[in-house]
């Protein structure tokens, strides 16, 4: 029992260290380099931000499936604000954030006021956000000086993606990509909110037992709404970083992050044996999959087969949790 507890608590970290040892043994001088480790961290930065959104929704007892589409929408809006509307970087950041808030509000309205189950409500909003995004860009990518096709012919878009904006995803601070720093800061702030503030207590209470929370004098609907807003905002930040990282807006580019984000959140449950959604765990979960995927790619394991490993890891983490709950 003691061993299982230990594995449960530190399993993910042991697994990460194990992977680091194995891959650096198999790939000497390639895997364990500063550049590659930074590469791993950048590759999980957007996943972690989006996963942070999922985690917030899970904390308040919801489940936000719209995060991937929100990231897509945010990245298109960010690029579009600069390319179509010739706005400065701060507008290109603000507008997607507002979009994230609005989607969060819609999610909570559907699930709280209309009592649609969370999974279905956010699934619906996933399609809505995806649709808005595609309508906005007419299905095209958005990039500097792109050609815009209209019924009246073709003309060049007036704006470009600004240097300031590109710094978010491409800049470095003393050798470390800025996006990693940004992600870590956001995860730390999120963790402080969840763990050290009144709001965090109320959120965990709401998610832990909504009925008890309500009878303890908590405005459950309000707290859940805040949770969904956090979720939307974090997903939107993920989308903004994505747009900057790519230097363009790619339709549906954020969608792919949903499943990885969900996996990271659930793997994170086991972190330190809490058994509840938590941001450090989510980060660790994302790092774990990131290390695994990077190592497998380096080992020339085909991309298609990598999904099998990802699936096994998620199933393994969930099984560990089920085993512990016994």
């Amino acid at each position: 029992m003691k061993t299982t507890n230990f594995i449960y608590k530190y399993g993910v970290i042991i697994a990460i260290i194990g992977l680091l040892v194995i891959f650096s043994g198999l790939l000497p001088g390639q895997f364990l380099t500063f550049d590659n480790l930074m590469n791993i961290m950048t590759s999980i930065t957007i996943t972690t931000l989006v996963a942070g959104g999922v985690t917030f929704s899970l904390v308040v007892g919801g489940f936000d499936l719209s995060v991937g589409s929100v990231a897509s929408l945010a990245s298109m809006l960010a690029a579009g604000m600069m390319v179509f509307s010739v706005q400065p970087a701060w507008v290109a950041i603000l507008v997607p954030l507002i979009a994230g808030i609005l989607i969060g509000l819609s999610n909570s309205f559907l699930s709280i006021k209309l009592r649609i189950p969370d999974l279905l409500a956010t699934l619906g909003m996933m399609y809505v956000a995806r649709g808005i995004q595609l309508v906005y860009c007419r299905g095209n990518q958005i990039f500097s000086k792109m050609n815009i096709i209209t019924p009246h012919g073709i003309h060049q878009a007036p704006g470009t993606i600004t240097k300031n904006f590109l710094f978010i995803g491409q800049g470095k601070i003393s050798g470390i990509p800025f996006m990693i720093i940004l992600m870590l800061v956001i995860i730390i702030i999120g963790h402080i909110i969840l763990n050290n503030t009144k709001l965090g207590r109320l959120m965990y209470a709401t998610g832990g037992n909504p009925e008890a929370a309500r009878l303890s004098g908590i405005d459950v609907a309000g707290i859940k709404t805040i949770g969904y807003i956090f979720s939307g905002v974090l997903a939107a930040i993920g989308g903004i970083v994505l747009a900057s990282y790519l230097g363009s807006g790619q339709p549906n580019a954020g969608d792919a992050y949903l499943m990885d984000a969900v996996a990271a959140s659930f793997i994170g449950f086991t972190f330190l044996g809490t058994g509840i959604p938590n941001l450090p765990g989510t980060l660790i979960g994302a790092i774990f999959t990131g290390v695994l995927m990077n190592g497998l790619t380096m080992m020339n394991v085909p991309y298609t087969a990598q999904d099998i490993f990802k699936g096994l890891v998620l199933v393994g983490a969930l099984a560990l949790r089920a085993f512990k709950n016994k």
Partner: peptide, 18 residues
């Protein structure tokens, strides 16, 4: 258990929450 407590939380959390 159903209406009063946050079972996955500590005594301190359960009392502190109100």
């Amino acid at each position: 258990r159903k209406q009063g407590l946050f079972l996955e939380k500590t005594i301190a959390f359960n009392i502190g929450i109100a």
